[in-house]
């Protein structure tokens, strides 16, 4: 609905989150176009403190940390978004099927969902990551996505179950509409706002998960992500060397991105959730 979108733009929380996120995105997309150097090029001594030339100093290999950070944020956001898309799509399909069809299908799908919720997803994440040889950032994102869908599935199922009994769904049925059509036109519009909110949350937690497994050294190869920068700092003992610039900016970036996404989510919640709205 156009109307709620306009209200959304008036929500200070959503706007703070969105502007922060977009500014960060713009920075990491534009800066590499200006500074066209290879982020992996060793151009200074190891652990140089920040100065006018190297804004965030250099890491253990003498690489420009600011440039690395730009690429790292890019990768992290990309991984988070892909993971969010996967989690949302899987959760949506399972939740809709479970809630709309009901009966036996619902029982089975709910059982599966609950199993996935009970098993610590981070453990699965680590196990899968270890067992796969060719880890690209895409593979990592997909792995994160397929371990984090159950919460979306649950929320969607609950919503769908209550919507299924509503009279406009009955009217659509006795108007001869097919089941897929009813799901798309009668159910989806009502849960769209929830799904968008779930997507934002899944993206934020995807970024955190990526950072966590990368920090353990189980993240994607051949790329730079925020978790990998932290991993390097850890492996090459940056904290011992007193090189705070090798890990603090990366950690802050993770915090800032997830903070902006959570702000957007809270802003949306206040507008879409009738309980809080009143």
């Amino acid at each position: 609905m156009k109307n709620s979108f306009v209200i959304l733009l008036k929500s200070p929380k959503f706007m703070i989150g969105a502007i922060l996120f977009l500014l960060m995105l713009a920075l990491v997309l534009i800066y590499p176009q200006i500074n066209r150097k290879d982020p992996l090029e060793m151009m200074a001594l190891a652990f140089q403190p920040p100065d006018a030339n190297l804004w965030l100093g250099s890491d253990n290999f003498g690489r420009d940390l600011f440039l690395e950070l730009m690429y790292g944020i890019q990768t992290s956001i990309r991984v988070g978004l892909i993971a969010g898309v996967f989690a949302t799509v899987i959760g949506l399909i399972i939740g809709l099927a479970s809630g709309y069809i009901g009966g036996m299908v619902d029982n089975i799908l709910t059982a599966i969902t609950n199993i996935f919720i009970v098993i610590p997803s981070f453990v699965i994440l680590i196990l899968i990551s270890v067992s796969i040889n060719s880890r690209s950032s895409l593979v990592t994102a997909i792995i994160i996505g397929i371990t984090s869908w159950p919460w979306t599935a649950r929320a969607v199922r609950a919503q769908t179950t209550s919507l299924r009994g509503r009279d406009h769904v009955h009217i659509a049925k006795i108007s001869g509409h097919s089941t897929p059509k009813i799901i798309v036109f009668e159910i989806l519009p009502y849960i769209a706002s929830y799904v968008v909110m779930a997507f934002v949350l899944q993206t934020a937690s995807g970024i955190l998960s990526e950072a966590s497994i990368s920090m353990l050294g189980l993240g994607p190869y051949n790329t730079i992500s925020l978790g990998i920068i932290m991993n390097w700092a850890l492996v090459f003992e940056a904290p011992v060397a007193g090189a705070w610039w090798a890990f603090i900016p990366a950690a802050l970036s993770i915090a800032l991105i997830t903070f902006s996404l959570y702000m957007m989510n809270t802003g949306m919640d206040e507008i879409f959730n009738p309980k809080i709205r009143s």
Partner: peptide, 16 residues
Amino acid sequence: IQAIFQDPFSSFNLFY
């Protein structure tokens, strides 16, 4: 065979 339901507010899909 057609029907009319009790609650007019829930009989309509608010999005259309």
